[in-house]
């Protein structure tokens, strides 16, 4: 095209970036100028062609858990996240489950299920020998523990249908654990899987886990107590 100014204006015109006055002015020019009209037509066609390219859905589902950081800060954050002043019940359940994962992803908790009494306890070993290093191993262990924990919660609280969902969830978590061997913590596939299973779990069970939040709350409090005693 001969005229650079027109070339730029033509693009602005086609992509609707001219103001009202310039647009009208350009339309007047367009009516007279055959070259511009041809170029515009070709531009439209090329643009329409380009838009026929659709990207296949990658089925992404990334979810972030808190990174390793000073654990006291994190626990405060979790409590704040689970219990801001007034929280919608469904929301707090979502927070609760997220918190279970967040908790397990940065400190060394141990969940113990007592089969006789049907109760479970949770303790922390932040200052224990496991702190630092060997992240992978730790995370595997943590995921295993969170799996057990949710297992217990569901077992204690829910009916048969929920048991089946619990099993699905467990299968997903087991798959993550199996595949995480010899890999770093922030591997996309892991994030995706954790994301899928977490989300699927609380989307399926929307608004039905109200009492779970109390359990999570108690766990956090208990964990805090344990930590304070160790201090």
């Amino acid at each position: 095209m001969k005229c650079d100014k027109k070339q730029s204006e033509l693009l602005d015109y086609y992509y609707d970036e001219l103001n009202e006055a310039s647009r009208k002015q350009f339309e007047l020019h367009l009516a007279k100028c055959e070259e511009c009209e041809t170029v515009l037509e070709e531009l439209k066609l090329t643009s329409a062609t380009l838009r026929k390219w659709e990207v296949p859905d990658p089925k992404l589902n990334m979810v972030f858990v808190a990174e390793k950081a000073a654990w006291t800060e994190k626990i405060k954050d979790i409590i704040h996240a689970i219990f801001p002043e007034k929280l919608h019940p469904a929301k707090s359940v979502a927070y609760g489950f997220a918190a279970v994962f967040i908790m397990f992803s940065f400190t060394n908790f141990e969940a113990n299920y007592d089969a006789d009494t049907g109760s479970f306890g949770i303790s922390t070993s932040v200052f224990g020998k496991k702190t630092g290093g060997a992240n992978e191993e730790l995370l595997l262990e943590q995921l295993q523990l969170s799996q057990n924990l949710i297992d217990v919660i569901v077992q204690n609280r829910l009916d048969e249908q929920d048991m089946r969902q619990r099993d699905d969830f467990n299968q997903l978590v087991s798959a993550i654990i199996m595949e995480m061997d010899n890999r770093d913590y922030l591997v996309r596939q892991d994030l995706e899987r954790v994301g899928y299973s977490l989300q699927a779990f609380y989307e399926i069970n929307d608004r039905r886990f109200e009492d779970v939040k109390d359990i999570v709350y108690q766990d956090v409090m208990l964990a805090l107590q344990t930590v304070e005693i160790k201090k």
Binding site: F64, A66, D77, H80, A81, A94, A98, I102, G195
Partner: peptide, 8 residues
């Protein structure tokens, strides 16, 4: 302000 779910 500390809410990871908002980031998600």
């Amino acid at each position: 302000n500390g809410d990871i779910n908002s980031f998600n």
